[in-house]
C-alpha cells in the first residue's frame, strides 16, 4: 500500500469516527434538550405537561434532520478534500 493510500485511509477513518460519534449522540442530545426546556417552560408558565410534550414531538423530526445535516455536510467536505488532493498529486 503506497504512502498516499495509507494517508488517505487514515484521513477516512478519522472522518468516519467524527461523523459516527456525532451522529450517535445527536438524537440523545436533541431529545434531552427539548425535554428539559419543556419542563422548565412548563414550570415557568404552569402549563404542565403541554409544552414538554409539544417540544418532545418537535424534537423528533429536528433530531433526524440535524443528524442528516451533519452527516451530509461532513461527507461533502470529505469529498471536496479528496478531489483537491487528487488534483494536487
Amino acid at each position: 500500500m503506497t504512502q498516499s493510500e495509507q494517508k488517505g485511509r487514515s484521513i477516512l477513518t478519522n472522518v468516519l469516527i467524527v461523523i459516527i460519534g456525532q451522529v450517535g449522540c445527536l438524537t440523545l442530545v436533541v431529545i434531552l434538550v427539548s425535554v428539559l426546556l419543556g419542563l422548565w417552560l412548563d414550570g415557568v408558565f404552569g402549563t404542565k405537561p403541554v409544552i414538554t410534550l409539544a417540544l418532545l414531538f418537535a424534537g423528533i423530526p429536528v433530531s433526524v434532520l440535524v443528524m442528516l445535516g451533519v452527516a451530509r455536510k461532513t461527507l461533502a467536505r470529505l469529498k471536496e478534500n479528496v478531489e483537491k488532493e487528487s488534483q494536487t498529486s
Binding site: R9, V23, G24
Partner: peptide
Amino acid sequence: IQAFVFGMLTMVFMAQATQGHGEE
C-alpha cells in the same frame, strides 16, 4: 442507528489500530 453506530465505530477504531504511525 445506534446498532450501526456501535458496530461502525468498533470497525473504524480497529481499522485505525491497524494503521501504523511509524512510517509517517
